[in-house]
Design a protein around this nucleic acid. Structure first.
Lengths: 232, 232
DNA sequence: CGCTTCATTGATCAGCTTCAACTGACGTGG
DNA sequence: CCACGTCAGTTGAAGCTGATCAATGAAGCG
């Protein structure tokens, strides 16, 4: 069963491609399901494919030799991931875990050169994705070097709701289950500190949160926290 | 005066190119000198060119709106930098400062598409550079999240001597002037902490350092410090 | 229902920043 | 060429942020 171009035609990764080009790219792809908590690929594993997330949310995690985990990023619907091939990497530098049930497209790496020549815009979009991630990651280094934990956590939560927020009657909720531990691993902190701060924010009416759930009720106030301009 | 291909033919950025291709790439380049402490390009400035460092050392710095500075990386001889064009960026995300007198090649961004088709391997090498920097930066995030300041500083010094070391009779010296403040800005620390730790290392016979100068006399011991496996 | 996972909250403490003062090296202009 | 100003580095003291340790509670799951 061939994949329908309407699945992907609106995505940034396919911007600038003709309908025929889209079909040509899809011809070498296949679609698969990954249940919640399953791994799409694993750190240091030989990179044989690259991926696009059709639906769901994926957590990209790096583990140190000592066993410490750091969340490199969350992948949202429509984004490419695992594109080691486009960076000239032989292995995946991190593990990709389905944060919820996911549907992904995958291409064998062997298809990459052909796609490059058949639809150069597709390759260019992939490179742009990598460039954007490099900038994001640099910004994260700057943030970790210059802001305190509370500001970093506030910033991380802001970004999560902006990229993966879902409106509810209470505010904007992060669209997938996320623990205090997860937020700690995104910010270079501990679940204890995250818990304390989120409790304090809840008292101030900035967020509402529960088990694996975070809802921002006052985004403006959270922004002020992130910028350290809140009146205490 | 045309540039001689022998200037660059051994560099990774030109790997896989025929001699004619190298000449074609060089045809659109021009060479210029930047004296110590001058800026090659500036953060948020519109990106009009991309660069390759022929000789010298360049410091790439990000400045926050609050005025905090973070050193994103040092560029070594033979490396591409300022390749915003390859990441689809309109402005430079950081400032590039000559750490010593430098010679750089520069290309107008307008030449990029032509180079891509004339010598695709050149483009591929640029993308590989970006991919490698993304991995480096991710590793830095992991390091900042999981290691203490002493380990991070030791790791940063190790990397500097590996990438830009020059053998002397005392050990391996970092090949350009670097201050405690610079090392602090690379590691998310302060010049005071860097100074204290380097003094302690000097007492232990691991390094010798002076004004804008760092020499590692016992790389193995420094590695142990970086891995937190030193017997105190 | 018992077990596991996730979250909360208090108490303690240390690693690192911040503040402050001082020293020595460099270079430059009179 | 020397005096002085600036820059880089050192080191002590104090204090705070955030980690660590510990214990308890609540929610979900098999």
């Amino acid at each position: 069963m061939p994949l329908n171009r309407s699945l992907v035609s609106g995505l940034p990764a396919f911007a600038g491609l003709s309908g025929d080009d889209v079909d040509a790219v899809l011809a070498t792809a296949r679609s698969s399901r990954f249940p919640k908590d399953s791994e799409v690929f694993s750190q240091d594993e030989e990179a044989a494919q690259f991926f696009l997330l059709l639906s769901g949310h994926i957590r990209v995690v790096r583990t140190t030799p000592e066993g410490d985990q750091v969340i490199a990023r969350y992948i949202n619907e429509g984004e490419l991931f695992g594109i080691a091939i486009a960076m000239g990497q032989v292995t995946y530098p991190a593990t990709a875990v389905a944060a919820v049930d996911c549907v992904v497209l995958s291409w064998p790496n062997a298809a990459w050169p052909g796609l490059q020549s058949r639809a150069p815009a597709f390759g260019a979009n992939a490179y742009q994705t990598i460039g954007a991630r490099l900038q994001d990651t640099q910004s994260r280094v700057v943030e970790m070097s210059t802001r305190q934990v509370e500001q970093r956590i506030a910033g991380a939560v802001m970004r999560l709701v902006q990229q993966s927020g879902r409106k509810t009657e209470e505010g904007v909720e992060i669209d997938f289950p996320i623990t205090r531990q997860d937020i700690a691993e995104m910010t270079g902190s501990t679940l204890h500190t995250v818990s304390r701060l989120m409790s304090a924010w809840e008292d101030e009416g900035i967020v509402k949160s529960g088990r694996q759930k975070v809802t921002v009720t006052d985004p403006h106030a959270l922004m002020l926290v992130a910028e350290n301009r809140r009146k205490k």
